[in-house]
Amino acid sequence: MEQGTVKWFNAEKGFGFIERENGDDVFVHFSAIQGDGFKSLDEGQAVTFDVEEGQRGPQAANVQKA
């Protein structure tokens, strides 16, 4: 798993971006967030995640709040 920081996340649209430790950004969809209840992330929040190849390039999977 990688570690990163939430760059931004739009809860209304259900997606955002995580900044990886290497400085690259990776797309995150709310469906990739682990846990119960409303799935959202806060700007600046530390997270761990896997990276999978999506239809439009790399995207975060198995996102967990650190």
Rank of each mutant, 00 (worst) to 15 (best):
E21S: 14
E19A: 15
F49R: 00
D36Y: 13
E2Y: 15
V51H: 04
V26W: 02
E12T: 15
F38N: 07
F49C: 01
E12Q: 15
K65E: 07
F30P: 01
S31G: 05
G4T: 00
A60S: 04
F17D: 01
G54C: 06
Q34F: 09
P58H: 08
G57L: 04
E19P: 01
H29A: 04
E19K: 15
R20W: 10
E53F: 13
V47H: 00
K39I: 07
S31E: 04
T48Y: 12
K13Y: 09
G54M: 07
S40P: 04
D24H: 14
H29V: 04
E12G: 13
D24R: 15
G57I: 04
A66K: 14
G54T: 13
G23P: 02
K39G: 05
Q34C: 06
K13S: 07
A11I: 13
S31T: 12
Q3I: 13
T5E: 05
I18G: 00
G44P: 02
L41I: 05
G57F: 05
G35H: 08
F27K: 02
K65H: 09
F9S: 02
K39Q: 09
A11N: 10
K13E: 04
F9I: 04
F17A: 04
G37V: 06
K39C: 06
R56S: 09
S31P: 03
E52G: 07
D36Q: 13
R20P: 04
Q3W: 14
E2T: 11
A61H: 10
N22H: 12
K7C: 07
E21I: 14
A11V: 12
K39T: 06
K7L: 06
T5D: 04
G16W: 01
F49I: 02
D24F: 13
V47K: 00
Q45R: 05
N62W: 06
E2Q: 13
G37H: 06
V47D: 00
D25L: 14
R56L: 11
G44V: 03
S31M: 07
G4R: 01
F27E: 02
W8L: 03
F49L: 04
V51M: 10
G14L: 03
A46R: 15
I18Q: 00
T48D: 05
Q34G: 08
D50G: 09
I33P: 01
D25W: 13
G44C: 08
S40V: 10
G57H: 05
F30G: 04
D25E: 10
W8S: 04
Q55L: 14
I33H: 02
Q55H: 12
V47A: 02
K7A: 05
E21L: 15
H29N: 03
F49E: 00
A32I: 03
G44D: 05
W8I: 04
F9K: 03
L41P: 02
V51I: 14
I18H: 00
E2R: 08
V47W: 01
G54D: 06
K65L: 12
S40K: 10
S31C: 06
L41K: 02
V28Q: 00
Q3N: 12
Q3P: 06
Q45S: 08
D50M: 14
E19F: 15
E19R: 15
G44Q: 05
A61D: 04
E12I: 14
D42N: 13
G44T: 04
L41W: 04
G4L: 01
G14A: 03
Q55D: 12
T48K: 09
Q64C: 08
D50Y: 14
V26E: 01
I18N: 00
V26Y: 04
E43S: 14
R56H: 11
G44Y: 05
K7D: 01
F49H: 01
V28W: 03
G16P: 00
V6D: 00
D36P: 12
G23H: 09
N10C: 09
V51Q: 04
H29M: 06
G54V: 06
K7M: 04
E19W: 15
A66G: 10
T5V: 13
V63S: 01
T5P: 02
T48A: 07
V6I: 09
E53I: 15
E12S: 14
